[in-house]
Nucleic acid binder design. Structure first.
Lengths: 377, 377
DNA sequence: CGCCATTTATTCAGCAGATGAATAAAACAA
DNA sequence: TTGTTTTATTCATCTGCTGAATAAATGGCG
């Protein structure tokens, strides 16, 4: 990014930007690059010299832990993606210490194999009630234990600062970083997939509640006495919308034994969706009910947060066509038109790659590694 | 407040405060007062000279419009309450123009009768979806019309700046201004009475959503196919908890005709509560159901906003003893213990006086009348 | 009664960050 | 070559704030 643009972004004069960047260039934290490339024609005047973070300042590893999968990604200090890997490894039956050992080994092996150079920090995203500030996972459906001091545990084992974050929050952050429109005003990202998570951003900054953020919105109990949820409650949003719930209920319709798997794969979910699209009435009912719950959930979000943008993302969007009619009807029944008109609803296809990218960006931001510390550390 | 205290509050050095206040004292916006009074003993050192806003800079009128009542309050620039009045006057059957005429006349007469001197601004609070920024009431159960440009209408008639605000937001602001603890972190104030409104504050500042704030949280639909609500929907939080709903359902239990009044008086509500306290099982059921809804509502607030403080206020707290058992049970069923532990729940008795005070403070703040403009205008 | 301790308020030199104006630099166009 | 356009830097300056020193105003105490 050129100095003038930085100034516009930060609301500063170009003179100030020159001042500040000069010392960073001296120290080698930034590098200037003559921009040979130029897209659109009609460029006159002195060409802008773009400034980049140096690539040699070390890198950051982003990790996502799912039910039986760990995704890893290595990003260098210039923000370029260097390597990624995913490993099939169920974590949910491990004891706390063993869990952290396995995770630390997995991360260390990844760093070694990719010749990562100095890894400055690790960011890890997982489902559940994550206390980012204190680095504690209070409860997670993925990790069996309660009140797990995950950040300090990994930090000790790896000898690096570790930031942990709820996965929906990380995804929301990544999505808003990709789309400038979503960074102004308030954006609520509802991630539907393994579970249902929320990331809420105000002016591009993640909203932090008293401890966890509002990311486990999926455990709002919408229907008294509704279906069983992983959290132990009944009638949570998740218990209708999450992959495990849809898959479970689909099996029950077919009078098959209730599945023990808490995470049906993409194949299994695809099969359910296809069968519904083919017109299976019982399955259509299932998606109809799920769409209603989604509409109610979005309605509650609109009424409590009044966001300018609502993003529905995650693997669950694969069935958006089945959900949409009842989703829209339920939303309409919940909110007055003036209120509904405020929030633009976006459906965004988002991969797990995006998620690990998000947690890397969050780690850089939250751990104050942006500038001087990268050099010092 | 003394200069040293101002400095501590703003995180500035006393030197700076002296600097800044000097010019304001010159201009007569502030006045210094030798503090003769002193509460606790053991005062040594040079006594602090307290600074006040001058009383002569004009005043502000705060107004609350209820269903058949208008409350008015005159506050001088030093923040002292000068006069208040309440008038029985139903507004809900008036056309838009007539409504604004009546309100303007009422306010003007109040200003005249109290010898208010120069009234610099008017703040008005009412129920409903209030767009404070543009001064529009999109919908209100009190005022029949839709999309009423109330601020500009009154401003033209009175020749003064007018700020309009949702009444629950105004109440929330007043409550947090009275209690310093509630100004740090996030505070959600649920006002239960004529309706159910919400005011949410982050670091003492009212949260503003895309347009309305989240003040009409009472119209979140909790129970599909529940009782009728004033908004036209069914099963809203309000339709269980608001005075009109409790009163209506109590009448129906006794097989009396459904009441047409949308606002039972304090007498009528007191009678219902007393009857329930005396052990009437059907009425106890009513309050049991209302308490459950309150618990669900607070649970949703905790999961979406994750506040540090939750305040339950408004006339509805009169029946808190009847609501509490089912309230607490429902809240417990909704949230995991770690989450529930974060929010301290306060039940605050709050009068309508406090509300008009709140809207005056908001008017001063939002209309930038704090300092120089008061002198200039 | 006079002196000391204590707290509040003011003065003043100086610093840090940002700015506007002027200038230099680097390209393209004619 | 000269002019135009845009980017970047230099520099004097300004603003807001600060720490240290000082003045002011009181009570406590011998």
């Amino acid at each position: 990014m050129a100095r003038v643009e930085i100034g516009q972004h930060l609301g500063m004069s170009p003179a100030s930007v020159s001042d500040l960047t000069a010392s960073l260039l001296d120290e080698g934290i930034l590098v200037a690059e003559e921009s040979a490339d130029q897209t659109s024609g009609l460029i006159r005047g002195r060409p802008k010299t773009r400034l980049f973070f140096a690539e040699t300042l070390g890198s950051v590893i982003g990790v996502w832990t799912g039910f039986n999968r760990v995704e890893l990604r290595l990003v260098d200090s210039a923000g370029r993606n260097r390597a990624s890997r995913h490993i099939e490894r169920p974590l949910r039956n491990l004891e706390a210490e063993e869990l952290m050992d396995v995770l630390a080994q997995t991360i260390a092996a990844f760093a070694q194999d990719t010749g990562a150079g100095t890894v400055k920090a690790v960011g890890l995203a997982c489902q559940g009630y994550v206390d980012t500030r204190d680095g504690i996972v209070a409860w997670s459906p993925v990790l069996g234990t309660r009140d797990l001091p995950l950040a300090s545990g990994l930090s000790q084992r790896l000898g690096k600062p570790v930031l942990i974050e709820n996965d929906a929050s990380a995804m929301a952050f990544a999505i808003t970083q990709r789309n400038a429109d979503l960074r102004s005003g308030r954006t609520a990202c509802l991630m539907v997939g393994d579970g249902v998570g929320l990331g809420f951003l105000v002016q591009g900054e993640l909203y932090r509640g008293a401890r966890f953020g509002n990311s486990e919105f999926g455990h709002v109990r919408l229907r008294r006495g509704g279906p069983q949820c992983r959290c132990g409650g009944r009638g949570c949003i998740e218990a209708y919308l999450a992959d495990y719930a849809l898959h479970r209920d689909a099996q029950l319709i077919d009078h098959r034994p209730a599945p023990t798997l808490l995470l049906p794969g993409e194949d299994a979910m695809g099969a359910v969706v296809e069968q519904a699209r083919a017109g299976d009435p019982a399955l259509l009912n299932l998606f109809h009910a799920a769409g209603e719950v989604l509409g109610d959930a979005v309605g509650i979000l609109i009424q409590t947060l009044e966001p300018d943008h609502i993003v529905i993302c995650g693997p669950g969007t694969r069935a958006m066509d089945l959900l949409r009619p009842s989703f829209e009807a339920a939303l309409e029944a919940q909110t007055i038109p003036e209120l509904r008109a405020l929030a633009a609803i976006h459906v965004v296809e988002s991969s797990m790659d995006l998620l690990t990218e998000g947690v890397v960006m969050q780690a850089l931001r939250e751990l104050d590694l942006d500038l001087a510390r990268l050099k010092a550390a």
